[in-house]
Write a protein that binds this DNA or RNA. Structure first.
Lengths: 340, 340
DNA sequence: TTGAAAGCGCTAACAG
DNA sequence: CTGTTAGCGCTTTCAA
């Protein structure tokens, strides 16, 4: 590499070095048709000079950045970090770069993330929107950027989305516990009003009464929040823990694996060791044990077939390829990963 | 917003709409000095048209992208996802966007990530390099991009890095276990040859013999790999588990929290429930419980003061601000977060 | 098969 | 305080 000394190597330098025009160099390096001997000389010169293209300039002219923006609430949640990892790898294999926006489940941050995605010229967006997103998805749609919503369903038929079958998940989880002999299930659900919480609850209640599942309202608790830094309120969790300890149950269903662990942790911290996971079945959602080792018999509801983390970018790539893309609302199948 | 109909709004449109020059519009929107009434008219027009700048064009001209590339091995590892989350939030507050590269601890991917960072014109790089990185850091250095290495020390005095005090960490962990009465500590270390493993082992052995710590080589095992998808080999973990069960120990020190959990999990899966974490003290590294609820008495070595996740981008911002930046090798203090 | 010219949208430099 | 001009490095278009 004879280049390290003087600044960035550009197409112009290669052109001057080989005697060909900038255009021919550009065409060669992009693999467009050029006479073989010419191409060889140019490629050799490019390698020799240590040429690395300038995507800013190329994006400027072509209008495409090969950047995909990924917008979500909490990257530290193992469920999401696993998803992001798979997305990043997927995009990489397809020649795209991922920019990550962590909104902390804040609507304003989310809006800014969308604006930033537009500003930087992202070719597309993968977004797991806040449940109360106050029109951000609408805004994104109006911007004309191709995007896929994951982890949530959007009523708009023009919006493409991928999510798990939460109603079925709730039902399967309940059935699983009943089959294990549970008759008084405690459901520690997500926050009230969150669509996913409501769907899982619906499934939980749908599960055939014949199986002996109690639909007692008192056995359903709503968590004080998800796990973004902002809403994690230790005191409210402690209150919840004390309440749980006064209740009567023989199995636990939690909104997510993380929440299941949180509940167990808080019970432990509060000194209520009388509810060991080794003695009472616990079921969560997300199946985080797939990517994270846990020495606990935590069962979990997770995807049964196609993975959301793969499906979402796959759909986006399809949109980006052009052609006539018909919006879709994928609801992926789920199953219980039993552990005990 | 009277704009949604016709394509992207540019400075030119605002200029035409207000009668000012493109330059004045640009200056206004960047907050440079402009007469107040002028600024107001322009800002109003920009808002009215729903103007969102084009950073590709601005980067093209100014040479700065306000993009920072973050390169690491395994985003799904909760230790790293927490770090990335904090980094992303930090960069965001400083007006930077983060592009993430997940190398799967593969040297070639890492090199490609660096090349991609250069190509996209990243203003800087935050990298946690593979332990056997085959000159990638050298390559990055030669490219002239400002960068900070985190999680690892690089001998080169010209390279700025941030890491934890692993030697001290190993010593503190050993002392902690001894104080709890352990006399035969099992150290499940990281892979052989990895610098971090070796430093923690060094600290472990440095811990005063007077405390009764056995330096018996047989009590130190090396893990078959870290947790990137590639090297996670269940069979080799099972072998390790069986070996552990034939050993005699009364406390466990693990290379990381994730590894501690993995060991406990594998022991469990292999049917060796005779080593419950509730009866034997276990210490790991990374203190992942800070960001992830675990209903287990897992003690952990983590940073005592400044957080690596904040220090790394802070150093990079300092480099990017210009001025005379002196390369530094930060070794952050650690402590034991005791849980039992 | 190759070259010349234009220009993407913006900012920097300078002039007024 | 505001306008004019030039040009970042590349791809596109058109001509040869």
């Amino acid at each position: 590499m004879s280049s390290l000394a003087g600044g960035k190597v550009t197409l112009k330098h290669i052109a001057e070095n080989t005697g060909y025009s900038i255009n021919t160099v550009s065409r060669t390096l992009r693999g467009l048709y050029v006479a073989e001997p010419t191409a060889q000389k140019i490629k050799a010169a490019a390698a020799d000079l240590g040429y690395i293209g300038n995507s800013v300039a190329s994006s400027m002219r072509s209008g495409a950045t090969r950047i995909v923006a990924v917008i979500l609430g909490d990257l530290a949640n193992p469920h999401y970090s696993r998803i992001v990892k798979i997305i990043v790898n997927y995009l990489d294999r397809h020649g795209y770069t991922a920019t990550i926006y962590n909104t902390e489940d804040n609507i304003l941050h989310e809006k800014n993330a969308i604006i930033s995605s537009i500003r930087q010229g992202a070719d597309g967006v993968l977004i797991c929107p806040n449940e109360f997103d106050g029109g951000n998805v609408e805004f994104l749609k109006a911007a004309g950027l191709p995007f896929v919503v994951f982890g949530r369903d959007i009523a708009d038929p023009a919006v493409t989305s991928v999510k798990l079958d939460d109603v079925k998940g709730g039902a399967l989880a309940a059935r699983h516990l009943v089959k294990l002999g549970c008759r008084r299930i405690l459901f520690v659900n997500g926050p009230k009003g969150v669509a996913t919480s409501m769907e899982r609850l619906e499934g939980y209640r749908q599960a055939p009464a014949g199986l002996g599942i109690p639909n007692d309202k008192d056995n359903v608790l709503f968590a004080p929040g998800l796990f973004n830094t902002v809403s994690a309120d230790e005191r409210r969790w402690a209150v919840l823990a004390r309440r749980i300890c006064r209740m009567d149950f023989d199995g636990i269903l939690a909104f997510s694996d993380q929440m299941a662990l949180k509940v167990l942790q808080v019970l432990r911290n509060e000194g209520f060791s009388r509810i060991p996971i080794d003695r009472i079945p616990v079921v969560g959602f997300d199946n985080i044990m797939e990517s994270f080792p846990l020495p606990l018999p935590l069962s979990s509801v997770g995807y049964a077939g196609e993975d959301m983390a793969t499906a979402a970018p796959a759909l986006l790539m399809e949109m980006l390829r052009g052609g006539d893309f018909k919006p879709r609302h994928l609801v992926l199948d789920v199953m219980v990963y039993a552990r005990g």
